[in-house]
């Protein structure tokens, strides 16, 4: 037995779903309403989400309950970020931006080396012994990585050996883009199936 609020919620969700799908016919007021509602509610959601999952547990609670007063430093940087509202002292916000950029660059350097560069190179240093299916696949991976990197190497003209390797690289890249495209389409189709299931199962129970 569903209560009133569940039924109301399902009808509201169904209306919003149909309003978005109405764009398939053409741009119309229902779509625009749903689109603007999406932007507004998402902004409201993110504001509350940030407060309850970042500001409160990481700043307010540690200061008020655990007396971690050193957290006034990020709070200070956060507050001076808001000086952008006051043109005369807006330059102060650069300190906060510099702080976040500094952390971002530091993490980008260490994170790229540890999280991408070394694991990806390590994954490419694979065994090529014996003539079997695994060796062939490993060889294809090594050729693919080297040729793709060569394609993106623009310091030398793509002529001769570099040109031929880059051509192999573009074949790999096209296969990768095609596969990614197919994968993305399937992801979107599964969302579409999800919405159809919602409409014809939760809203109008045609599918049992």
């Amino acid at each position: 037995m569903h209560n009133f609020w569940t039924i109301f919620g399902v009808w509201m969700a169904a209306f919003l779903t149909l309003a978005i799908f109405s764009f398939l016919y053409k741009d119309n007021p229902f779509y625009k309403l749903a689109e603007h509602l999406y932007v507004g509610t998402s902004a409201g959601y993110m504001l509350i989400y940030t407060y309850f999952l970042t500001i409160k547990p990481m700043l307010i609670d540690p200061i008020t309950k655990q007396q971690q007063f050193f957290l006034f430093i990020p709070a200070f940087f956060g507050i001076i970020m808001l000086t952008r509202w006051f043109p005369k002292i807006a330059w102060l916000s650069r300190w906060s931006i510099a702080f976040t950029i500094g952390i971002g660059t530091g993490l980008a350097i260490t994170g790229s080396i540890q999280g991408i560069l070394i694991p990806q190179i390590k994954g490419t240093l694979i065994a090529l012994h014996g003539w079997n299916w695994t060796t062939l696949n490993n060889l294809l991976i090594i050729i693919g990585v080297i040729s793709t990197l060569t394609y993106f190497y623009f310091s030398k003209a793509h002529k001769g050996v570099i040109g031929k390797t880059a051509k192999i690289g573009i074949i790999y890249i096209m296969i990768a883009f095609g596969a990614s495209f197919g994968y993305t389409v399937m992801g979107r189709i599964s969302l579409l199936i999800g919405r159809m299931y919602f409409l014809f199962h939760d809203w109008i129970p045609l599918i049992r």
Partner: peptide, 18 residues
């Protein structure tokens, strides 16, 4: 093939990021 190309792109991206 997809993984090989993606790996090449990722190595390029990480070098660029650094």
């Amino acid at each position: 093939p997809q993984m090989a190309a993606k790996r090449g792109i990722l190595i390029g991206i990480s070098l660029g990021m650094i």
